[in-house]
Structures are given as structure tokens and as C-alpha cells.
Design a protein around this nucleic acid. Structure first.
Lengths: 346, 346
DNA sequence: CTGAAAGCGCTTACAG
DNA sequence: CTGAAAGCGCTTACAG
């Protein structure tokens, strides 16, 4: 092995990692490292023959670019920090899929953080992510801490906020009106003839509270009682839905419809109705929120608000990339709307 | 502003990023950059007074370490690559939580990839992740492509495999016996007196096939018909469960129990039974797999196998960290077992 | 307990 | 279309 001679006289301070680098590729392809770099990033600027030799060398050597070196030299990490409230909620997983599909197309990677609906936790995650020098952020909701806004501004890192629409025209936001969605559902129940609709809310995050506000407004606008509700800060689960229904019926026995702040709660309500022998929608109508994959297939199918979470992720990532590439942005505030899916439960 | 003089004579090749670096902190704290680095990584080696001055400087300047520089210099990224089949399945999200809780304690971050049960996709994700120079990998299942094993070996990157137990004693694996789990469920149904249990399988991934094999073996051991089943490569959903039940009953009308390869399918079967007026478990018993959060709260509660996915994630990450720190490893193959949760559906 | 020197593997900013 | 030089912000490997 002629390469053995390389190790005969180790240099002081030598830290040869043994890793294949751009220099190795350059040697084999008889070009400079700079040309290899160009062949990788901007192939159009490299002569075809050189490109071919470089491709062969990369193949032969099994060269893998070192992202850390690239990030350090270029001050661009190609990383986007993404904060969602929770991965336990299928809604946000679908948003992530939208983000991934959008980011993949442009060579960006992303870091995922779960805020668990806590602004403190969110700020803390951002601080941790900052060490990775992300090029941008995708955040959930529009209610970030002032210190966080300041931190992003100071580091000049753009952010797009998802799931809601900011009243501030300068903020980049992609979502829909949570309040209008709540209003729509109340209107639907009213039009169906329900006279005593109640609201079941968990988590109590800002978006949920906006849905509730819309729901209450529609009832008040119709001159109906808008105060029938049970709220809890606990995370929503099927189990919780069953429990909250019990509380609601105890407090308002003549309640004839219930709007759950999400489908998980609605499923729990449905099972509890089955256990109690309450017919749905005969004695009690059930409505949910989000249109989770199973909601159309429950028995009965659950009326719900269809939210565009995949598109929110895809569009938000797309908007952020446009901004990073300094392309012109026509609209910083993108309303993707929602739909009402009426099914047998109401 | 006296600092303005700094910009009077810009150097050629100057790329001052404006970012606060370890050098800035060192100046303010009147120490060398090396001492700042130590104060951050191994504070015990730095005198208290210096540490205090450094802490103040970091605070004042808002210094954030540059991970890319650290990774490049140390050849340690503090990043773990994690591949799970899908984030749409709550099981894997819980595993991620276990991984996060374990990794957080040791300052590791992680990259998440979804293989969608495809070995090709898995290999592709690993290649992409390699660019980030991960210190280790956490993989799902034990059936990786040979090229992937080779790639990990070549780069000398340790990996822990989750959810199954490798027959190879050298592989680090954390999971449980999928086959025994399937066997247990069949034994339970047999003991309950069911004579014509069938199997509903989706996705057809290796672990699902092992559950099936265990199920069939128990039936065969008991001299019963082990061929009652409907399989499909489609991903499991509630909707699919309903559809598969239809096929099963058409093909085997006297089937009196059904073991679903996971709880989502079981929920679909339950709703379909309700729609068809089939009493559960009177006319048909239903069993699932995984014990998803709602399965105990369905109507009736669904009998299922409780799988230790949070612990699998936590333990696998812990094992990997031990390996990375070159601590002695007593057991490379950790069987976390499973439990049978018997509920009203059987 | 502390620091000067060298190097990690890329890309920027020129210059041809 | 190509390349030499310098630098990105840390840590290693010494030497005190």
C-alpha cells in the first residue's frame, strides 16, 4: 500500500479525519476544489468534461459534502426551524408533511420543535434552534412573546406564522379565520333547528378561544343563549370528550347540540352518548373541528370543519422560501379558508 | 461612535458576518477564546472568576454558539438521525417523545425522517442525513438494506434498531417480540372460547407479518383454522378497517372474532359492526394492537396489546448515547415486552 | 487553570 | 470557465 507512507511522519496538530473531502475529489478529477464546489452548486458554470470527471470521482470516492463546513463558510444553513404545538395531534403532522414537500423541492431541511402550546417553551426552542443558524422559522399561531419577535428581528431571521391570520399586514401569515369557522358551525346548528347548542373546549389556546368567540357571536347574533359551555385547560383527548359531555349535561340537561373544539373530543362525546343511550343526532347533535381522517367514518359520521392544514404547511414554507430568495411577495397574508362538512351527526 | 473606524479600511476578502463570536466574548471577559470554549463545555476546568466574567459577557453580547463551527472543528455534530415509518401513526410519535426526553438530557438534537415503510426511502434518508454528519442513528425495524448497513459501517456510525429484536447478538436492538405478541392475542381469543378467529392485516410491513405469524401459529398449535384473514398493503386507517371487515365477513361469515394488526383498523371494524347491527363481542369479538390513547374509551373498550413505544424510544436513545460515550454496554439486545389489555370487546 | 497555533472542509470574493 | 488566497467560528493537541 503506497498510501502507508502518508502516515509515516504525522504532523503535529494533525487531525486527519479520514473523511473524503472536496479536495480528494478535486485531485482525482484534476480540477481545483473550487470547481468541485461549483459543479455541486451551480453546474451550469462548469464545463461538461470537468463535470463528468467530478461526477465519477464523487462516485468512486463516496464523497458526501460536509454541511457544517458549508454552513460555516456561507453563513447559510439551509435549515428551517419549525415549531408546532404538538405532534400528538394529527393536524400538525399533516402540516409538517406539507412543509416537507415544499422544502424538499428547494433543498431545505427542517428542525421540528413542540411547544405544547406554551409561549415560554416556544421561545426556549427558538433559542436552542438558533445555534443551528436556521435561515428562517415557521411558527404556529400569531401570539409570540415580544422577546421572541425581538430575537428574530435582531438576528434578521424571517418567520412565517401558520394557522391564523395576523392583523399586522407586515407579518407573513398563512391560515384561516378561526373565528369565522366557529361562527359557521354555530350558524349551521342554528339553521338545522337546534336551540340549545353548547361548546366544549380544551387546551384553551388562542386559536381555540377564537373558535369559541365566533361560535358565541353567532348565537348572540341570533338572540340565543351563548353561555352553554364547559372549558378546561387539559389537552383534548377522546377520554376527555366523554368526561366533558358528562359535565355539560349535568349543567345544561336540555342542551341539544354540542360543538367540540376538535374531533378527538367529538369522538369521546359520541362514545359517551352510545354508553348513555343518547341517540345522535336525535337527542344530541355532535360537531367537531378539523376533519380528522376517521371523522367521516364514525357512526354516525361527524359534522366538522375541514381545515387546510397540509396546504397551510406547504404554502407557509413556500412563502418563506420566496422571502429567503428575495423574490417578490404579492401577499404576505394568505387566507386559505375552511369548509363545513355536514354529516349525519347533526 | 468609535467603532465606526473599524469600517474605514475594509480588508479584501473580508466577510465579517456581524455575528457575535467566541472571540468577542473572550475580549470582553479578558480571557482567550479557548477559555470561553472550556467555560461552555467543561466549566470545571475554568476558574470561577473567569467563568463569572464569561457568563456576564455572553449575557451582555447575546452570544449564541455556532454549532456549524463546533461540528466542523470537533467532528461531532451532536445530532442523531432518527428514522420512523410514519408520523401519522401515534405510536411513532410517542417513540419520538421517548427519544427526545432521553436525548435532551445529554445535549443531543435529532433529525426525523419518515420511511413510509420503504427500505429504499430509508436508505435515501440516511444518505441525506449523512450530510449533517450525525453521530448515530436510531432506526425502525431490523430489516435494513445491505447497502445501508455497509454505509453505516464504513462511516463508523453506530445505530440502534427499534421495535423488534435482532437475532444477531451484535446488533443493538430495543423492542419486543412481535411474534409472541401475536401469539398471545390468539391464545386469549382461544381461551375466551372463540372458535373462528380471523386476522386483518394492512401495510404488510415485516413487524406486522411477525404478529400475523405468531397469531397463526397459536391457532395451528390449537388445531384450529389459521387461514381466516384479509391482507392488504394499503396503510391502515379507520376507513380501511370497515372495508376489510366487509371482505372478511363475506369470505368467512361464521368468523366470531377478529384480530386487527392495529387499533385504527379495530376502530373501523367497531364502527362497521355498529352500522351493520353486529353486536360486539356477542356476535363478533374485536381485538387491536398498540393501545392507542382512545382504545380504552371506545364503546365497548377494545382489547389490545399494550406496546412500550415511549420506553423503546427512551431506552434506544439511551443505549446509543452509552455507545457514543464509549461506556460499557451490558446488553445490546433489550426486550421491553408487551402486555395484553383485556377489555369488553372480547 | 490558561493560551497560541493549527486545522476542520467548505465558500466568498477576486482575478484571470 | 477556472483557481489561489483568505476566512467562516469553533476545537484539538500541545505546552506551559
Amino acid at each position: 500500500m503506497t498510501t502507508a507512507s502518508k502516515t509515516i511522519k504525522p504532523q503535529r496538530h494533525s487531525r486527519a479525519s479520514g473523511r473524503v473531502t472536496i479536495v480528494d475529489v478535486a485531485h482525482m478529477a484534476k480540477v481545483s476544489p473550487m470547481t468541485v464546489s461549483r459543479a455541486l452548486k451551480t453546474p451550469a458554470l462548469v464545463q461538461q468534461a470537468a463535470r463528468d470527471r467530478i461526477a465519477v470521482a464523487i462516485q468512486q470516492l463516496g464523497y458526501v459534502p460536509n454541511q457544517a463546513a458549508s454552513t460555516l463558510a456561507s453563513a447559510k444553513s439551509q435549515v428551517i426551524g419549525v415549531i408546532v404545538p404538538s405532534l400528538s395531534n394529527a393536524v400538525f403532522v399533516e402540516t409538517l408533511h406539507g412543509i416537507r414537500d415544499s422544502l424538499d423541492q428547494h433543498g431545505y431541511k427542517f428542525l421540528i420543535g413542540e411547544s405544547h402550546y406554551s409561549p415560554d417553551k416556544e421561545s426556549q426552542l427558538i433559542s436552542t434552534f438558533l445555534t443551528q443558524a436556521p435561515d428562517g422559522f415557521l411558527l404556529s399561531g400569531i401570539e409570540q412573546q415580544e422577546s421572541l419577535r425581538h430575537q428574530l428581528a435582531t438576528n434578521n431571521i424571517p418567520a412565517v406564522r401558520m394557522f391564523d391570520l395576523s392583523p399586522n399586514r407586515n407579518d407573513m401569515t398563512v391560515g384561516f379565520s378561526q373565528k369565522k369557522a366557529g361562527y359557521s358551525m354555530a350558524r349551521h346548528l342554528i339553521e338545522r333547528g337546534y336551540r340549545r347548542p353548547g361548546f366544549l373546549g380544551a387546551q384553551l389556546d388562542p386559536r381555540m378561544m377564537k373558535r369559541r368567540a365566533g361560535f358565541r357571536k353567532a348565537l348572540a347574533d341570533a338572540g340565543m343563549d351563548s353561555g352553554i359551555e364547559v372549558l378546561t385547560a387539559a389537552p383534548s383527548t377522546v377520554e376527555l370528550g366523554a368526561k366533558l359531555l358528562g359535565q355539560l349535561l349535568q349543567q345544561t340537561p336540555d342542551c341539544d347540540a354540542v360543538f367540540c373544539c376538535n374531533d378527538d373530543l367529538a369522538l369521546g362525546v359520541l362514545f359517551e352518548c352510545q354508553r348513555r343511550g343518547i341517540s345522535v343526532p336525535g337527542q344530541l347533535a355532535i360537531a367537531g373541528f378539523n376533519n380528522l381522517p376517521w371523522s367521516a367514518h364514525a357512526n354516525p359520521g361527524i359534522t366538522t370543519i375541514v381545515t387546510p392544514r397540509y396546504d397551510i404547511g406547504f404554502t407557509a414554507a413556500h412563502l418563506l422560501i420566496k422571502r429567503l430568495k428575495r423574490e417578490p411577495i404579492e401577499k404576505a397574508r394568505i387566507d386559505l379558508g375552511f369548509e363545513l362538512a355536514i354529516r349525519a351527526s347533526t
